[in-house]
Design a protein around this nucleic acid. Structure first.
Lengths: 342, 342
DNA sequence: CTGTTAGCGCATTCAG
DNA sequence: CTGAATGCGCTAACAG
């Protein structure tokens, strides 16, 4: 069903139909005829052809590293909130943490009818930079700093440092602090958080020793394996701090499993908090991200609340500014954090 | 940058460039020149214009009720797995559990360059049915039964019944079984699971009493409130069964909070399982969905594993069959389940 | 207010 | 093998 057919059936020109559809001048009489025909046929204009013409889609594309994540869903919720208020819709592309897919979806959106792109960043490769530098489509990056695009990121270093201090005062005498991080290629989550954490510990006179350190993927399962390895090799661990709450969940699982396997112990509740008791002494797990699911079922571990939803909101606002008002001045925005359950 | 400009720069016709791009006949010499120009300019053909022409996008649109869900991400992972192998990409639209948005995104995809649509269904309204009946775009529905489209759904009734039997044998003498469901408008999760559960209990001689029943949204928070209400009004509860693991997580949170507020008690571990001890007697929480996160941090509650990933795989295969081979025979597929941690 | 006309960027005939 | 020409479905001038 095309606009031309509708025009014929209604006995008008296709331009009249187009105007009808877009709120232009149409006489009452023709308006009625067109309306009737459209209702009868159930005609829907092809968004695709329209976009080819107008170069406007009222659509933004969002590239995310994975779908099943509380923090990411908070960001997208923020985006949705502001763009839907302005008549836009949102399309998501999930890359499953594969940088190549990320590029391929960025390129898809680039040649696709979207007015702008929001990239929830993890690892920024040279290819990413090249894309950001060369693309004509407005892009804002959320979650990572970059000078090649408008960006909104979080104070991961500060959060890491604050957590380091918290942990410093929590690790018992004679015990050690351990850390499960992620790849440093992720400057924010892998780099800044860990660097900050180290610094926070150091400011309290504690050194994070390399043997008490592991690298994990962004998954619970990976956190589980890393934590188990840590527990098996280092019996004097007092705290396990993880780069994300998801990894922390894996660490908690490992504690449960380890306890079950080797050491008689128990889980006890104090207040709303659970401590995973190991060989008669609690191993405390900390995270980043303030995952509500984790909080609900465990009572909450020490973690950091970032303004994920806010970053989505601000990111979308920024994007719409450049889409609609052609705003040219580059923006870098850093958002703060809040310690939780310390 | 258009195909025409490339043609000019390379001193050939736009048709030649088009052929070059699509693997048609081009002499070695021109091929070289074209290649060079394209590389220099970084030209990328407009997917949008191409689609307008060819009616093929190598894209499938997936409409999901929410983004932050383990079960949904398992389905999309399944979809991704098969379509990416066949050269397709996937675009997601999240409706945040709002039926109107669902329709609006379905219509977006309908007039958009996607070759097919997969709808992860919750509530199927008359509008949905009308859409499915009338749209020309191939659609498959995952997670709900419908006769208006190819569909793949799970044996929610059977799963509910099986869980009912498990619970029947777990609820202590003198105690009652409680159930937190969701809206019956969701035939699968709201209707079938609860009906099956009732039946399972009944087959063991237990009746699910209405006062021990609550309705929740598909969120943890809602499960929390429902469970707390249940606990406060009915002290003789032995088990709380929830329509989803997410709701169950909320129920666990409620147990923790309730215990803290009123009743001295403790959490104890037996094996890998935790039981939330209430007034000296454990209240067992059960769910549906086999959420791995929940399992990790609690040791696992009795739940049901559905073949979510499989349904994604089969759904995508079905869709590609109709997209690529014009398969016309309607398919309804029911997938089984497996009890976990009973 | 209205219809005619000319493309948006590309793929596909169809004669060369 | 190749280029000129046509049109996908729609909107934006433009002259009525």
């Amino acid at each position: 069903m095309t606009i031309k057919e509708i025009a014929q059936l209604a006995g008008v020109s296709s331009a009249a139909v187009s105007r009808y559809l877009n709120g232009g001048y149409v006489s009452e009489e023709k308006r009625g005829r067109i309306k009737k025909v459209i209702e009868e046929t159930g005609y829907q204009p092809s968004a695709q052809a329209r976009m080819l013409r107008t170069k406007r889609a009222c659509l933004v594309g969002v590239v995310v590293p994975k779908i099943n994540s509380e923090s990411i869903s908070r960001v997208t919720a923020g985006i949705e909130q502001v763009i839907s208020k302005r008549g836009y819709q949102m399309l998501l592309a999930s890359t499953d943490n594969e940088p190549e897919k990320e590029i391929s979806y960025l390129k898809l959106f680039e040649n696709y009818p979207v007015d702008g792109i929001i990239l929830i960043g993890t690892v920024i490769t040279p290819e990413h930079r090249r894309f950001l530098k060369e693309t004509g489509v407005p892009v804002v990056v959320v979650g990572q700093y970059t000078r090649y695009a408008n960006c909104i990121y979080h104070d991961d270093y500060g959060a890491g440092k604050a957590m380091g201090k918290v942990v410093a005062s929590a690790v018992p005498d004679g015990k050690k602090a351990a850390y499960i991080g992620v790849t440093k290629s992720d400057k924010a989550v892998g780099g800044a958080r860990e660097d900050g954490f180290r610094e926070g510990l150091k400011s309290a006179g504690i050194e994070l020793e390399e043997e008490y350190t592991r690298k994990a993927e962004f998954t619970m399962d990976s956190g589980y394996r890393a934590a188990l390895d840590l527990l098996e090799k280092k019996p004097d661990i007092g705290t396990i701090s993880c780069a994300t709450d998801t990894i922390a969940a894996g660490a908690i699982e490992a504690l449960l499993a380890y306890r079950k396997k080797d050491v008689p112990s128990q889980v006890k509740h104090s207040g709303t908090r659970m401590e995973y008791v190991l060989s008669d002494s609690a191993v405390k797990v900390t995270g980043f991200g303030d995952n509500q699911f984790l909080k609900a079922v465990t009572g909450g571990i020490p973690t950091v609340h970032f303004g994920y939803k806010t970053s989505g909101i601000r990111g979308a606002e920024l994007l719409l500014d450049v889409i609609e008002r052609g705003e040219k001045i580059p923006v870098e925005m850093k958002l703060g954090f809040r310690l939780v359950n310390e």
